[in-house]
Design a protein around this nucleic acid. Sequence first.
DNA 1: CGGATGTATGGAACCGGTTCCAGTCGAGAT
DNA 2: ATCTCGACTGGAACCGGTTCCATACATCCG
Lengths: 344, 344
Amino acid sequence: MTAIADVARLAGVSKATASRALSGRGHVAEATRRRVETAAAEIGYIVSPDAASLVTGRTKNIGVVIPFVNRWFFGEVLEGLERTLLSAGYDLTLYNVDGAGPDRDRVFEFFLARKRVDAVIAVGVDLAEHELAALERRDKPVVVLGGGEAGALGPARLGIDDRAVGQLATEHLLQLGHTRLVHLAGDGAAARPLSVQGLRRHGYLDAMSAAGLAPRGRAEVVETEMTMPGGYEAALQLLGQPGRRPTAVFAASDEVAFGAIRAAERLGMSVPHDLSIVGVDGHEYAEMFGLTTVEQSPSGQGRAAVDLVLRLLGEGAEADPLPDSGAPLPTRLVVRTSTMRAPL
Amino acid sequence: MTAIADVARLAGVSKATASRALSGRGHVAEATRRRVETAAAEIGYIVSPDAASLVTGRTKNIGVVIPFVNRWFFGEVLEGLERTLLSAGYDLTLYNVDGAGPDRDRVFEFFLARKRVDAVIAVGVDLAEHELAALERRDKPVVVLGGGEAGALGPARLGIDDRAVGQLATEHLLQLGHTRLVHLAGDGAAARPLSVQGLRRHGYLDAMSAAGLAPRGRAEVVETEMTMPGGYEAALQLLGQPGRRPTAVFAASDEVAFGAIRAAERLGMSVPHDLSIVGVDGHEYAEMFGLTTVEQSPSGQGRAAVDLVLRLLGEGAEADPLPDSGAPLPTRLVVRTSTMRAPL
DNA sequence: CGGATGTATGGAACCGGTTCCAGTCGAGAT
DNA sequence: ATCTCGACTGGAACCGGTTCCATACATCCG
């Protein structure tokens, strides 16, 4: 309805000058700029992003691929991404892609390959070779958050050191004198060693071996869905068995840990007196559960991913030249009341 | 890189014909269409959505405004929206807007008012007059999901009947013989009577009055954040007080109910023997907690919202002429083990 | 068999910006 | 005084599609 030509006419300048004045590119006399700006304000002019991106090739829009929105970690990351992108003037287009399947192919081939996004942030998804290649071919920077091997080739990666996290959590239990440990791992931990759950499991096994507790790799690991009911069911089954119970559990995520806490209580065990439990995430409910956990900041990771992507797009490149390049994002152990010294 | 002109040249037709063949609009001979299609496939042609929407004015993109992504209900709605939009060939641009503030204004004035979205779906947000007006002015249909008065004027509304939900849950407790009830309401329930939490509270009060239990409006209501820790803290405080404890709690959401269950157990009370608890949502964890709840289907609501919005946009208008217009979305009471007859 | 109707196609305008290129003009340099 | 340079501005091309209009031809009708 109201195009830049209208603004130009009203301000008595050419389209070219109006464009320069409003976008801030090129030389425009101060007086002219003001005239154009008031004219624009007067008729309520808003640039058409379509027209602009048609010619510039930039959309000010980032595609985010995420497998769940209703798992705490992912939801939190998403919020961090959204807020940061918004304040940078970018839109966020959401692609909720879980596992494989035709939907996933559609997203990559149809949606992402089109020119609507300037870059892609993938959260906790392993991109396949051909998916990466398709994006590469269209010159779309890709940032992967979480999972995978840190130093590997391919897209820019970002995330915590999940293996170190697993080690840290396990060592905490070991230092408390526990010797009968169990790891409630995420499903696929053994099958996909480079996934988040795989790396955490690896860290657990490392710590166990180092303590001489798993000479023949018999440190117990049970896989389950990384949700509260997942942890509940797994723990119920595990702790319900006759024989010598474990005295400590390393849960692959806080949600799993919550489920395990509830299962233990349901079985009449007291946490931490009969069972110590440590999780990872720093879930907002961890305090309420008194859960000892290895904290990370998913929203901070979202922010970091946005920073990185904007840098790849050449925004604020002058600002800070790769301040934290490559280093894993921070984590820290927070000890609460779900862990204590092993019983004698 | 590869434009429609290239396709046209390769197929030996004009741009106009190529466009018609690929978009399916207008008359094109079957043989020609095939030729164009193979040509397009050969060079890997993909339409530029920017160019297309520049001229058609449609972006195939829907803006979604949502206050949280990390509360179960909202996350679930978001997933439903995403999946449904995706399969309809639409993108979803996310605006995580909570409360008021400059960010919110930016979203409405800068992002949504631009021409990047064809319509807006607002989930659990009260749109202000001027916000609605701004969208109206730009001819953007708006669908509001959740909250508000069903029959009111203004944008298309969609949602469950929250007042009936509150009544239903409360009546369930009353029928079990409980007389000392408490309602853990969402914050702002009293202050904003048309909000989700306000309507649920209203339903609770209605049922209480009808049962003659609140002659002077003294049915107890405590407000809290609608999260698990919120329910936990509120219940801890409520149940920790000396005096006659309530025997039943109606929690405004399942997450609040989970917190209340945990608080009760922490205080040595048994659920349901000492305390019956009913929630609302049909949270995926409800089964694990054995929670009696009034179930709704947030992802189904997301789907319904998309259907409605597409109808407003004139897609599939022929298909079904307003099948469920106006009727509140379905809910049902699911009785589990968190409620039982009141003690004598 | 002439005119009406309809299908198939191409040419060209257009959507609303950005940017290249060229031209004007004033100021500082020589 | 002339030249040079840089700031400022306008004209026009262009991004990549869609769609209006005109034209060509085949078909159908009375």
